[in-house]
Design a protein around this nucleic acid. Sequence first.
DNA 1: CTGAAAGCGCTAACAA
DNA 2: TTGTTAGCGCTTTCAG
Lengths: 327, 327
Amino acid sequence: MVTLNDIAKMANVSKSTVSRYLNNGSVSQKTREKLDKIVQETGYQPNLLAQSLKAQKSNMVGVIIPRYGSPSTNEVLKGIDSIAYTEDIQLMITNSDLDIERTKKNIRLLQRQKVGVIILLATTIDEELEEQLRTSKTPIIIVGQKLSGLPAYVYQDYEAGRLIAEHAIKLGHRHLLFVGVTEEDYAVGVLRKKGFYDVAKQNGAQVSFIQSDFSRSQNYEKALKYLPQTKATYIAAATDHMAIGIFNACMELGVQIPNQISLSGFGGYSETRNVLPHITTIQYSHSEMGETIMKAALQTLETGKNRLHTELPVQLLIQGSTEELKG
Amino acid sequence: MVTLNDIAKMANVSKSTVSRYLNNGSVSQKTREKLDKIVQETGYQPNLLAQSLKAQKSNMVGVIIPRYGSPSTNEVLKGIDSIAYTEDIQLMITNSDLDIERTKKNIRLLQRQKVGVIILLATTIDEELEEQLRTSKTPIIIVGQKLSGLPAYVYQDYEAGRLIAEHAIKLGHRHLLFVGVTEEDYAVGVLRKKGFYDVAKQNGAQVSFIQSDFSRSQNYEKALKYLPQTKATYIAAATDHMAIGIFNACMELGVQIPNQISLSGFGGYSETRNVLPHITTIQYSHSEMGETIMKAALQTLETGKNRLHTELPVQLLIQGSTEELKG
DNA sequence: CTGAAAGCGCTAACAA
DNA sequence: TTGTTAGCGCTTTCAG
């Protein structure tokens, strides 16, 4: 491997001259040309490890994702990556596989790697992890979970629930059904539902609730069982994926969407367009979230500080699966 | 930041002793206990950059992906990650965003990071890139593209095309339609199609062809236009995603699947199960591919060598969208 | 079992 | 403009 030292010897100059040539540039025309040539010929590339060691930090940003393949995570990554790329900073992506211990381990690893900032796409946080987050010398940006006193980026999930309910009410629906998930997931299980309920009740609508999980199959099964006996004319599923499961059950049972029942999700992923009619949903602008986070990360890289939490707005996307209640 | 040197001073021993304590272990009981305590209290963590610099290499594996969010890429990543995790080796994932220049740049970056191996999930390769691949000091494992003389991992795409055609023939279909993509994509555009054609012709079936692209919408549009006039009773789309577009068009036109027309895809992603009936497809075991690659990477890490190309088998997955031709 | 010393590749004073 | 020197944090001979 050709090193800076090699180059120096070949050119009969000192290492510092080569280093200057590579960085600042205060070198004579002559030596510059000489070095140009040598670097060209040897294909020399500075060793990043050495540079980072010297600088006491790398210009890398660590990202901890909950798992591969989640559409939302992918969108966020795209946003992060787009900014990182234009700013020429390198991403170190690690996967915690929904495992809190792996999350902790990944944080340690990234710290040891001397990344400048860590972006944590969080799911659950226990005490030990919280402690780790609070005491980390490396700044950590938390996404998706609020922790008092720690900087975090979240969506307006309560607002999202309200938007869907308002939409349903506006269409004239009075019998609503919310298909939700465990309250352990604060954003999806609590906030979306609460927003939905609050608006529904304010408007005197009837709301019923089914607890389900995130899988398509589970929602399909539940819907098959529950649909025939429901009086609801509007079903709000807590995620798009869940909505797809319910959608399939409707097809199976010959229940027409949106004629007989309106159906909506949350998420705004392209999968809502995999079925016809497309499913009304709440758009979470994940890529925008990614960009926002990455910009915050950049600022943190420069200043060493990061600001407190920010909530990103969401948007109602009306598609074909919801319709005005038939007289 | 607390360093090995700090620990040494605190314990009144030399750096080498601490280093030995951390690695080999040839230390007296006494000093070991002393160090245990200090390390515990200070929360000391060895600097990975320094370690890697010293060792002249990091135990990282670089992965270059074509873009975020592709289902196949995600599956491959899962496979890679699962092995990497158990072997405790760190992944450095970079995104080339389907841009060949970015690919080249990423390779250089990873080389400078001193990763042990680079895994390249390739799309297109031009001369310059090929040169880069051939001359790289860092071993590079290529996935998805064959290059003579370079180690690579690919799928049996020709075989995949054959399997689908055999399936159609076996069901009694005589009028087949293949919806494909540009031949610039060798695996999808050429091999799958060729396998399909070869079997179809061997069996005296009629085959027609429509050139489309990878998007759902484009295939939806094309199908809307073409379906009413086709005599085909079996449509083979070149990917699952394309098949979904065609599926939607059938729904729109009231063409019943599989009663009137059988439809299949390639890919085996879960999206084939987003619609009812589920779509018959060819399973590409991407996660298995990921595991295979990562194992190869590990071997390369140890031996410094990597073997020549390997083809991974594919599998027919029969679901509800294909059916025996009605008399 | 332990310590001194050298060195991985690079940068940054400080002199010259 | 250039070279000398020291040092980032760690590992690894080689003596003791």
